[in-house]
Design a binder for these strands. Structure first.
Lengths: 159, 159
DNA sequence: GACTTCGTGTCAACCCGTTGACATTCGCCG
DNA sequence: CGGCGAATGTCAACGGGTTGACACGAAGTC
């Protein structure tokens, strides 16, 4: 331990949070690759799309918390993989409307269910902590930090 | 809400965790850019380097939880910015040893202190939750999920 | 000394994100 | 009708990550 008293990487809680989401993501990513041949990033794209009703590129980008350029670049590979179809709005020539193919719907359904089961069974191995209370506290911290962010960075896409 | 009962994105807690780290990172990134002209990613590179004693590329990569190729590519820009120096091990011709310049040391010290202050003051605005207990519970969940990950992905860099 | 094996760093190709610029289209208003 | 601002999607250039291949040096073995 080079410097025990002052930790240079921000408060320790932030480090633990990062580690936790890294582990959770790696776990989900491995399950999705092995069982469904998709990346976690790809699954999230399709899952968010499945919750929307024929969004355009801009709307999907906002819901994914990324830029429209990022979505625009990825659409091609999803269409090539057979999970997504692009439609054109007859009333708005520049709009590109997105929808899942039947294959995409099935993938999101099956992968989502399996992911749900895996995480609930994994979380069941932590009886010492009250997950509902933990979630509530995390939400409280989140809203506080979000307002703190809004004060310092008013035009952030996360607020 | 298209599907209220079953959430396809894994348990809600995971979503909240992602949002929280996103907000925390954005907050830190904005502070570092405005006050010190560095990205959060750049600061983390330098801060981890500052905690090690003349590591080589492979060692720093392991501590950053990235591949050595990722570190190898970034070193050049850090040297060009004047924060990092590269040394060569006289007893090991292929090793590239890294160290901070005085500028790099000062940057990590100043930015780290300011980051620490900002986060402690922000967390002080959440008196409703016991941060120590929250941290303890998060750590408990982390170790459980890490062992769950180790069971499914034995050769993961995170375990 | 020659051989194999391992460790180390670099490279190319790719994935995925950003910003800034751009052409096109929509919609409003004079 | 004409013009002009806002919205939309795409592109190039870049930051930063990965994997797989590779060249080279270190080290043990025959």
């Amino acid at each position: 331990m080079t410097r025990p008293p002052d930790h240079p990487l921000g408060d320790r809680v932030t480090v633990t949070l990062h580690h936790l989401v890294d582990v959770l993501d790696e776990y989900a990513d491995h399950l999705l690759r092995a069982e469904h041949g998709v990346t976690l990033s790809q699954y999230l794209f399709l899952a968010v799309l499945s919750d929307l009703d024929h969004p355009d590129v801009t709307t999907l980008a906002r819901c994914l918390h990324v830029t429209k350029a990022a979505v625009s670049k990825r659409v091609g590979s999803f269409v090539a993989a057979g999970w997504v179809r692009t439609l054109s709005d007859p009333g708005h020539a520049r709009r590109v409307v997105l929808e899942l193919t039947p294959d995409g719907v099935a993938l999101v359904r099956d992968a989502g269910r399996q992911l749900e089961e895996a995480f609930t069974s994994a979380f069941a191995d932590v009886p010492q902590v009250d997950l509902t209370a933990l979630h509530r506290d995390l939400t409280t911290v989140l809203v506080t930090m979000r307002s703190a962010l809004a004060q310092h960075v008013p035009d952030s896409p996360l607020v």
